[in-house]
Amino acid sequence: MHIHVALQPLIALIAGILILIVPRLLNYVVAVYLIVVGLIGLMPLLHLS
């Protein structure tokens, strides 16, 4: 039997728990999220050149 767990909800859960434990971590979590989403959004443009 295979157990399939989606990665995004798992990351969100871990990030939420860490933010509750260390509220100052919220700044870093948001910054990393924005950088990753921005890089993923730019990927198609980077492969065209």
Rank of each mutant, 00 (worst) to 15 (best):
M1E: 05
M1D: 06
H2R: 09
H2F: 13
I3D: 04
H4N: 08
V5N: 00
L7Y: 14
Q8R: 14
P9E: 08
L10V: 14
I11H: 07
A12I: 01
A12T: 08
L13D: 11
I14C: 04
A15R: 03
G16H: 08
I17A: 14
L20E: 02
L20D: 01
I21R: 00
I21G: 01
I21Y: 02
I21H: 00
I21F: 01
I21C: 02
V22A: 08
V22Q: 03
P23L: 00
P23E: 03
L25T: 00
L25R: 02
L25D: 03
N27T: 15
N27Y: 13
N27K: 12
N27D: 12
Y28P: 01
Y28E: 05
Y28V: 08
Y28D: 05
A31F: 06
A31L: 12
V32M: 10
V32L: 10
V32N: 09
V32P: 03
L34T: 11
I35H: 02
V36T: 09
G38V: 04
L39H: 13
L39S: 15
I40L: 09
I40G: 07
G41N: 11
G41Y: 05
L42T: 10
P44L: 07
P44I: 09
L45A: 12
L45F: 13
S49K: 14
S49G: 09
